[in-house]
Design a protein around this nucleic acid. Structure first.
Lengths: 259, 259
DNA sequence: ACTCAATACTCGTCATGACGAGTGACGTCA
DNA sequence: TGACGTCACTCGTCATGACGAGTATTGAGT
């Protein structure tokens, strides 16, 4: 696997040979590597050694193995989908997500009533165990098939007295609209992490070997920077990348103050 | 390895048992797992099976193995370091990175003269092969020891006629200042990707098993949204997370236009 | 009391052998 | 001609055995 070994290890040498052959063009992307028995013959080593070498290449994301068929050189995966994380608001006050994608719903949104965990309670600045709506969506980009797991957490305190109490499964941009109607000046904070997927995430997001997921938390802040809403966003990192727009913040104390 | 197998596989069952024991608290974070021979006795399986099971847990990032010592439960790695990607500009026009960290230089900045590759040329919207300065830094956060690889690419066209031609290894915020002095209104675009590290990145960034890296490209835009400068930012994803501030974009056509 | 070598543990590597499971092609039979 | 079973090939799993390499403890010798 990935640990740093002395390069003298036989399987490391075999892995290096195969890697060289791949980069030299002997095995272009998509091509089948020699089968295990052929590699055994070619390098004069035993099967565990060959399997160990292939496992190393697989862990690097260079090679993909299919049971019953063989090993194949993976296409160098530059993410095809760029998700623009900007938010725009038109003159009528409607919010729009800047990523152009029109996401398909793979499944119907599923709403639950749950409670905050330690992590989400901290992010929302509420007591642990606070009641909230959780709405899960499994989305798909029709152009690339890229899947996205999206979860919206709406604390009861936020939903109370708004349309959200009746329709907690509204689209996020609609939720923003409702909160803005309620008199909030909205800003957002996003936190981006990457980690290896859990087994169930691998399945639902169709994540290949040696591929991390991008895990994003978006907190919607209202007046006084009060956290109102938390969204979670998970996507396979070989399919998607995130873009952000940064503008220079001016210090708070300014001559020209608005309003 | 990570592939989806029938759960009936013996090593999967063993892995599940160990996983359960860990989450049940029998082996708290930092504790040593039973040795391979003990696991062989405990579950009545052979060594390859035990090793396969431990390898699966390692790939999940749940367990860390040290040669000659044993296997240990990894501390649930919530990134300790949050890197704030905002940029602020004070009244005198000086730029500041919003991440509070005072980065130490592990090595002196290394400047090279190189040419754009396909990827960087596209990002900078110039011809491939264009000449540029490349300045590499290996930084370290003194509080957590988190290492960051940072690279600044300054096209000759940008450096020309400014102080950057003589000091291409200036701190990024200083570079921003120089460009602003030259009459540019700066904005930035960041693209975040995650992927598994290359072997040399594993070494220099001290990245543990089953840990991806966060790979960020920051493009500095000048007047007319013209790309001036490209920065690259690589960090171990188990140590750091990135935060962004999002404000709603208003449509361009507005009554109140700023001079 | 200290040094350092022997030792007993740990995991890492490699070989051999066997069988199960998935895939695809080929050939037989209806 | 078509359906379907056989077969050869792939990788996946599991066991046994052996030795190398790293770590820590123990204990003998100084």
């Amino acid at each position: 696997m990935g640990e740093i070994q002395r390069p003298g290890a036989l399987y490391q040498q075999v892995a290096a040979e195969i890697r060289k052959a791949i980069t030299a063009g002997e095995f272009p992307p998509g091509a089948a590597l020699p089968s295990e028995s052929q590699l055994i013959a070619r390098y004069g080593v035993s099967r565990p050694t060959v399997r160990n070498a292939v496992a190393a290449l697989r862990a690097e994301g260079l090679v993909e193995v299919v049971h019953g068929k063989g090993s194949f050189v993976r296409f160098t995966a530059q993410p095809q989908l760029t998700v623009d994380r900007r938010i725009t608001q038109d003159r009528s006050g409607r919010f729009t997500a800047a990523d152009g994608a029109q996401w398909d719903h793979v499944e119907e949104p599923a709403v639950q009533r749950t409670q905050t965990t330690t992590a989400t309670a901290a992010a929302l600045e509420v007591e642990e165990g606070e009641a909230l709506f959780a709405c899960d969506r499994l989305l798909s980009d029709p152009a690339t098939g890229t899947r996205v797991l999206h979860r919206t957490l709406i604390p009861f305190a936020t939903a109370e007295g708004t349309d959200l109490a009746d329709a907690p499964d509204s689209e996020p941009v609609v939720v923003y609209g409702v909160l803005a109607e309620a008199g909030h000046a909205l800003t957002w904070t996003e936190t981006v992490q990457a980690r290896m997927p859990l087994p169930d995430e691998r399945a639902t997001l169709q994540i290949p070997d040696a591929t991390p997921i991008l895990h994003t938390l978006r907190i919607t802040h209202g007046n006084d920077h009060q956290p109102l809403l938390l969204e979670e966003f998970r996507v396979s990192a070989d399919r998607a990348q995130l873009t952000y727009r940064i503008n220079a913040d001016k210090p708070a104390t300014r001559r020209r103050s608005r309003a």
